[in-house]
């Protein structure tokens, strides 16, 4: 099961790379993913999201970007949220936010986990 979920997300990742957009696939969520996502999000060499975003539980967060909160309500479509992390310059060409997917700052799997984490905020 675990393996096939992984596989699925790799395939989805590849499809996304080709089409440049996200297929809204049903996604199985593990509590572990939220935990792992938080770790990757707060790793300075990875997401470093709190460099710019505050959220509940963030320590010494920066204030360059908006607070990450109410994510579920604001992004009923999880894929739309993932798109922002993958490449925010698509939504705002002048944004300071790094294009985490497009420039391979994070792997597709790491982005999935971060999505799970911020979706829990």
């Amino acid at each position: 099961m675990w393996k096939s979920v992984k596989r699925l997300s790799t395939v989805a990742g590849a499809a996304m790379l080709i089409s440049g957009s996200i297929l809204a696939l049903p996604h199985v969520v593990f509590a572990d993913d939220v935990e792992d996502g938080k770790k990757v999000a707060e790793d300075r060499k990875k997401g470093n999201c709190f460099g710019c975003h505050d959220y509940v539980g963030a320590e010494m967060a920066g204030n360059i970007g908006p607070k990450l909160e109410n994510m579920k309500a604001r992004y009923p479509d999880k894929g739309a949220l993932r798109d922002r992390i993958w490449d925010e310059t698509k939504f705002n060409p002048n944004t300071i936010m790094p294009p985490f997917g497009k420039y391979k700052i994070l792997s597709e799997d790491e982005i999935d986990k971060i999505v799970e984490f911020i979706y829990s905020l």
Partner: peptide, 12 residues
């Protein structure tokens, strides 16, 4: 960093 976000905080 030094125009658009001057005066903002990047982390601390």
């Amino acid at each position: 960093c030094h125009v658009d976000n001057s005066g903002n905080k990047i982390r601390a």
